[in-house]
Design a binder for these strands. Structure first.
Lengths: 118, 118
DNA sequence: GACACAATTCAATAAAAGTTGAAATATCAT
DNA sequence: ATGATATTTCAACTTTTATTGAATTGTGTC
């Protein structure tokens, strides 16, 4: 995976609306959901949902299929697996041993992380 | 990991400059690099680099340590591993079997992906 | 055909992110 | 103390992203 594509995928996941949306589609796999259902579940105005769906589509993280007058969206799970593989390889580049050393620990002590309720 | 933190991490990785920066720090682990070295390697003006370093710092993906008049930055690899774990769990939520089915395939045929040279 | 429904596009606006040069802060060397 | 170096902060500006209501497109139903 190229860096440009990877950063576009992270860009797509960088909004809480879009992250929630993608997670919802993952949970709804393999059937997916039509736009109206998504809007109702996520409590997002349709026009705004379209905006975010377009962002996810552009990254390739979701796909769409026409179904009568509905549009059905699905998560592109293989691409997510590729993204995970990219992250894994970038994270451990040149030193797989280093990641192995960390793998059993927790990420970081709470004190050094920003407060996510701000 | 909370959704808000996860999306903030993806936000941090959503810029190619910051993604390159993070990858550079991963390759430089565990020593890390001081700001000046990063600026020289990545060919980014110091003032702009500071801006992006702050973003990565805020997400928790990198850490900083004072070293005389230098500031040394390091990748927070455990947090990246947590992020990978988050993605893995979100991606396969409620259907680990589905991800297993995909794992040996390639992500998607090139035709349905946007052109990343645009 | 006329009407209702699903969803998008458009236009306007508000808010946030990115970039740059100049100024400020802090440390080291003489 | 003075000057050089490392890095950040500040202020101004440009660009991009997010949100919303109104208008548009396409499909199904009567």
């Amino acid at each position: 995976m190229k860096t440009a594509h990877a950063s576009s995928i992270f860009e797509a996941l960088s909004s809480e609306v879009r992250l929630d949306l993608f997670r919802l589609l993952v949970k709804s796999a393999p059937d997916g959901l039509v736009a109206g259902e998504i809007a109702r579940i996520l409590q997002v105005p349709g026009t705004n949902l379209s905006f975010h769906l377009k962002g996810l589509l552009h990254s390739g993280l979701i796909s769409v299929e026409k179904e009568g007058r509905f549009l059905r969206y699905r998560a592109n799970i293989p691409l997510m697996l590729d993204t995970i593989a990219y992250l894994t390889s970038e994270c451990c580049a040149n030193q797989p041993e280093q990641c192995r050393r960390y793998r059993t620990q927790s990420a970081v002590s709470p004190a050094v992380l920003p407060d996510w309720n701000d």
